[in-house]
Design a protein around this nucleic acid. Structure first.
Length: 775
DNA sequence: GAATAATAATTTTTT
DNA sequence: ATTATTATTC
């Protein structure tokens, strides 16, 4: 009896394949990680492959860590020598060693999307681009797509000839790359592109890694972009000791779970793998070990609506299981409250524990309301993603100090902290320094050091020099042998008086902010303790840039987890709540109204498939008729994906708050209170005329309504009117109490004129103003 | 020239 | 609702 006997026939074939390209099409829950780890073990144990020669690429650090751990459990030795890491970490590791070939310094900084945006803002200002027409975000995405396709700024320029807009893009792209280099910084895409550039520039570097990585494995292959594929191809093109090109490349993926097209994922990497490698062997894993029959069938039915997929039929030996639950709520607050109550009850009755539950949604913004309800119920939870810890102001400030000390060329970081805490250095001074830096072709920080020689900076120069000395002193500490990053952080906080400054600002959430600084400190300490040898500052900054929230999700925490559908890929939970199943939310408004809705909706559908297939035992779907989004009330119809699940697999659950407020659950006491909060106050929103126009967004379903449930009314039935008229007294959230002096019918909305007395007379649209009638 | 108050703008998904 | 930018005050 060997460990390989637990594998099914197809899995076994995949595991025992040793030489040559291999494509594993692995459906959801078909044990693909198991196959990968067993294959690594098999190669080591039975084929005498040196773990040193194995490279396994994943997309998240979590997946990488898990893979290493699982190999360790099987083999018991040598797993630390396998190179298992994410694409991005792999590239950083290579570049830290070789990037000087490309003219960068080895201490380069990695820019996250916030940094990118800041840089782009500067560029738009510099190139006098009107950001009303060309948004920073869209410019960045143009650049990102170019990089994904390995198009250089020069090439982009060539292709742009004669096209004004593209010409502009080319200029921005060029300037962006120029500034990254000047700051000795790389963005995420650069990590991949520069590694390829390195391999094309240095035969020595390429040969070294080709020789080392004799066996390459790629997880989530459907998410690779053109650049990543090129990188894999370059590495897999090496020769072995006998001078043979074996292409020992094993890729695992599922075209139905390709959900990163927006990030450049190229579906043809998986669809055309056999064309690229004609000798490739293809193995399909179609047995699902995760979900019940009903859940799997629901998933299959939904995904069957997509065209142009690789043919496959996922099946399972698991039990029939519970039907899929669908509940339609009136409001998002009900949805959240109800789901949270259900979880509390299940845990109370010891049917399950907190960690068995996941709440999944399309956008991060949806997490807020759940958090609210979970706190009230005292349920332990973890939200993955939403407000990234490293995006907090305090953290960014302190990290910028670290970056400034580690890489003085990173002007973005220097500019961020030069006046934090306030040193009396304002915009005008910064502009002058910047101008001097550009004129003399030096970095911003270098210009600060020469502040005394900058014309027009008499008084300001005196304010700059203490800052420069501070950084210089902190810098000199790094060279001490006993130096640690956490000491450095302490010194920064101490020397700048950062915490005192924070306290002086009299912010209401002062304690939270100080706590966050403490959290940063413990993260640094933990990082230093986990490292085998004392890590360098750039090691830590790299960790910060490349470790995502999901990576820290561990199973030993008994908490309910909340995350986006994207983050949930690769995970599984006994009980899954898929909420916000509404047209405009999921599928998203963006996809419905895209230039090419068919394609975009298909991606959303794959995302839905991913969501459904996370569930092992029970799947609960829900939608709300009314939802608050960015301070506005939206009215959405249930998602088309609900309709795609056959009725016999679904139960339509009654909204417990509506049908029977005294339902026999232990939380019945909450209900009357809830309703009273909901009814009169909410009427102002639900009766505004824009509501009916928003509603039409989902009207494609009017002709073909999938629901037998009688349509319920919200609050009152006077939708499309407003409950105040000329001469009425109304209150506005910001302007206070005023008198309605005029109402005009402005198409789908009403333009209301209100006299707020001393505040003045304002004209506003009824749908946005949220006026409340006072009588 | 800098600090502060007021106003405009923004969010789909992520390494 | 939160954050970046602009207008205003000191």
């Amino acid at each position: 009896m060997s460990i390989y006997d637990t594998l099914n026939a197809e899995q076994k074939r995949a595991v025992e394949h040793d030489k040559g390209p291999l494509l594993i099409l692995a459906g959801a829950g078909s044990g693909k990680t198991r196959v990968l780890t067993h294959r690594i073990a098999y190669l080591m144990e039975n084929k005498g492959v040196n773990p040193w020669n194995i490279l396994a690429l994943t997309f998240t650090n979590k997946a990488a860590g898990e893979m290493r751990e699982r190999v360790d459990n099987i083999v018991g030795y040598g797993s630390e020598n396998i190179w298992v890491s994410t694409f991005h970490s792999t590239c950083v590791r290579i570049l830290r060693r070789w990037i000087d070939v490309l003219g960068f310094d080895k201490g380069f900084t990695i820019y996250d999307s916030d940094d990118q945006k800041t840089l782009m803002r500067e560029i738009c200002k510099y190139l006098q681009i009107d950001t009303k027409n060309m948004k920073e975000r869209s410019l960045l995405s143009v650049i990102s797509s170019a990089k994904d396709e390995l198009i250089t700024p020069e090439e982009y320029e060539l292709r742009a000839v004669g096209d004004f807009t593209k010409g502009k893009y080319a200029a921005v792209y060029k300037e962006y790359q120029k500034r990254l280099r000047a700051n000795n910084a790389l963005d995420f895409d650069d990590l991949i592109c520069k590694t390829i550039e390195l391999f094309q520039t240095s035969k020595e570097a390429l040969a070294y890694y080709q020789r080392r990585f004799q066996y390459i494995m790629v997880d989530e292959y459907q998410d690779t972009n053109t650049a990543q594929f090129k990188l894999i191809k370059l590495l897999a093109d090496g020769v072995n000791e006998e001078g043979l090109r074996e292409h020992n490349l094993c890729v695992v993926g599922d075209d139905d779970q390709s959900i990163y097209k927006f990030r450049g994922a190229n579906i043809f990497n998986i669809l055309n793998f056999e064309k690229e490698y004609p000798q490739a062997k293809v193995i399909k894993l179609e047995q699902n070990y995760r979900s019940t029959k009903r859940i799997l069938e629901a998933a299959n039915e939904v995904i069957a609506n997509n065209v142009g997929r690789k043919d496959k039929a996922l099946w399972t030996d698991n039990a029939e299981g519970d039907v899929v639950h669908f509940t339609q709520f009136d409001r998002d607050s009900q949805e959240a409250e109800c789901i949270v109550n259900e979880i509390a009850q299940a845990v109370q009755s010891e049917e399950a524990s907190y960690q068995d539950f996941a709440i999944l949604y399309r956008t991060n913004a949806q997490s807020r309301i759940f958090e609210e309800k979970l706190v009230v119920k005292n349920i332990p939870y973890k939200i993955i993603g939403s407000i990234n810890f490293y995006a907090r102001k305090e953290v960014k400030d302190l990290l910028s100090y670290l970056k400034t000390i580690g890489n003085g060329q990173d002007s973005l970081a220097v500019k961020r902290i030069i006046n934090i805490p306030k040193r009396g250095i304002g915009l005008a001074t910064i502009d002058k320094v910047e101008e001097y830096a550009i004129r003399n072709d030096i970095s911003f920080y270098e210009a600060l050091r020469q502040a005394d020689y900058i014309p027009g900076l008499q008084r300001a120069a005196a304010r700059i020099s203490p800052f420069v000395s501070l950084i210089e002193i902190l810098k000199s500490n790094i060279s001490r042998p006993d130096y640690s990053i956490s000491d450095l952080l302490d010194e920064i906080i101490e020397a700048t008086g950062y915490i005192e400054d924070l306290k002086g600002q009299e912010l209401e959430n002062e304690d939270d902010r100080i706590e966050i600084i403490g959290e940063l400190k413990s993260k640094i300490v933990a990082f230093e303790e986990a490292a085998l040898e004392p890590p360098s500052l750039s090691d830590f900054l790299e960790e910060v840039a490349l470790v995502s929230d999901i990576d820290n999700l561990t199973e030993d925490n008994n908490v309910v987890v909340l995350m986006t559908l994207h983050s949930a890929k690769g995970l599984e939970f006994p009980y899954v709540y898929l909420c916000g199943m509404e047209e405009g939310i999921f599928p998203s408004y963006m996809s419905i109204h895209a230039d090419d809705p068919e394609t975009e909706i298909e991606e959303e559908r794959r995302l839905c498939y991913v969501g459904i297939t996370r569930a092992m035992k029970r799947l609960s779907l829900s939608a709300c008729s009314q939802r608050m989004l960015r301070g506005e009330t939206q009215f959405n119809r249930p998602s088309r994906f609900i309709r795609e699940i056959p009725r016999y697999l679904l139960t339509m659950e009654q909204n417990p708050y509506n049908s029977n407020p005294f339902r026999s659950n232990s939380h019945a006491s909450l209900v009357p209170e809830f309703n009273s909060r909901l009814q009169p106050a909410g009427v102002a929103h639900s009766t505004n005329p824009a509501a009916s126009s928003n509603r039409d967004m989902g009207s494609i379903f009017d002709k073909n309504k999938p629901f037998t449930q009688p349509p319920r009314e919200f609050g009152g039935s006077n939708l499309g009117t407003i409950d105040y008229g000329i001469g009425d007294t109304v209150s506005h959230i910001k302007f206070g109490v005023g008198l309605v002096t005029n109402i005009n019918n402005a198409g789908k909305d009403y333009e209301v004129t209100v006299d707020f007395g001393t505040t003045g007379t304002k004209k506003m649209l009824a749908s946005f103003a949220k006026l409340k009638k006072l009588s």
